[in-house]
Simulated scan of single mutants.
Amino acid sequence: MKKRRSLFAELKEGMDALRAERAVQSQSLGKDNPHIGSSFDDFLVEDGRLEEATATALDRIRRLKR
């Protein structure tokens, strides 16, 4: 049980570090590249499909966990 918890903690720390790195990269890319637009989430909101896409993704995750 200890190995599973430590592995989970290590994975979480790695994901947090990756997210922080991507945030820094996206900020610098947005300033330098005029061709980068809004996010995919923004597109789904404009299209009125964000809730549907989120629900579908959550259903798929639940099925994979079984």
Results as ranks from 00 to 15, higher is better:
residue 1 M to H: 13
residue 2 K to W: 10
residue 3 K to G: 02
residue 3 K to I: 14
residue 3 K to Q: 09
residue 4 R to N: 04
residue 4 R to S: 07
residue 4 R to I: 05
residue 4 R to Q: 12
residue 5 R to S: 13
residue 5 R to C: 12
residue 5 R to N: 15
residue 6 S to Q: 10
residue 6 S to M: 10
residue 6 S to K: 00
residue 7 L to V: 08
residue 7 L to T: 12
residue 7 L to W: 06
residue 8 F to V: 11
residue 8 F to W: 15
residue 9 A to P: 01
residue 9 A to L: 13
residue 10 E to A: 11
residue 12 K to D: 13
residue 13 E to F: 00
residue 13 E to L: 03
residue 13 E to M: 03
residue 14 G to H: 05
residue 15 M to I: 07
residue 15 M to D: 02
residue 15 M to N: 10
residue 15 M to Y: 13
residue 16 D to P: 01
residue 16 D to F: 00
residue 16 D to Y: 00
residue 18 L to K: 02
residue 18 L to Y: 12
residue 18 L to P: 00
residue 18 L to C: 03
residue 18 L to R: 00
residue 18 L to V: 07
residue 19 R to N: 14
residue 19 R to E: 09
residue 20 A to S: 08
residue 20 A to R: 05
residue 21 E to H: 04
residue 21 E to C: 00
residue 22 R to A: 00
residue 22 R to K: 03
residue 22 R to W: 01
residue 23 A to H: 07
residue 23 A to L: 06
residue 23 A to Q: 07
residue 24 V to D: 00
residue 24 V to W: 01
residue 25 Q to R: 04
residue 25 Q to A: 02
residue 25 Q to P: 02
residue 26 S to F: 12
residue 26 S to E: 07
residue 27 Q to M: 04
residue 27 Q to A: 14
residue 28 S to I: 11
residue 29 L to E: 04
residue 29 L to V: 03
residue 29 L to A: 07
residue 29 L to F: 14
residue 30 G to R: 07
residue 30 G to N: 08
residue 31 K to T: 01
residue 31 K to Q: 09
residue 31 K to F: 08
residue 32 D to Q: 15
residue 32 D to Y: 03
residue 32 D to W: 06
residue 33 N to H: 09
residue 33 N to F: 10
residue 33 N to Y: 09
residue 35 H to T: 14
residue 35 H to L: 06
residue 35 H to A: 14
residue 36 I to E: 02
residue 36 I to F: 02
residue 36 I to T: 06
residue 37 G to N: 05
residue 38 S to A: 15
residue 38 S to I: 11
residue 38 S to W: 15
residue 38 S to P: 12
residue 41 D to V: 07
residue 41 D to C: 11
residue 41 D to K: 14
residue 41 D to F: 15
residue 41 D to G: 11
residue 42 D to F: 11
residue 43 F to L: 08
residue 43 F to D: 07
residue 43 F to N: 07
residue 44 L to K: 03
residue 44 L to A: 03
residue 44 L to D: 06
residue 45 V to S: 04
residue 46 E to I: 13
residue 46 E to T: 06
residue 48 G to V: 05
residue 48 G to H: 02
residue 49 R to F: 03
residue 50 L to H: 04
residue 50 L to R: 03
residue 51 E to A: 15
residue 51 E to D: 13
residue 52 E to Q: 14
residue 53 A to Q: 08
residue 54 T to R: 10
residue 54 T to V: 12
residue 55 A to P: 01
residue 55 A to Q: 15
residue 55 A to F: 05
residue 55 A to N: 08
residue 56 T to V: 08
residue 56 T to R: 15
residue 56 T to L: 12
residue 56 T to M: 15
residue 58 L to Y: 04
residue 59 D to R: 06
residue 59 D to V: 11
residue 60 R to A: 11
residue 60 R to N: 14
residue 60 R to E: 10
residue 61 I to Q: 06
residue 61 I to S: 08
residue 61 I to D: 09
residue 62 R to S: 06
residue 62 R to M: 10
residue 62 R to L: 12
residue 62 R to K: 13
residue 63 R to F: 13
residue 63 R to W: 01
residue 63 R to M: 08
residue 64 L to I: 11
residue 64 L to H: 09
residue 65 K to V: 09
residue 65 K to N: 13
residue 65 K to Q: 12
residue 66 R to Q: 14
residue 66 R to E: 09
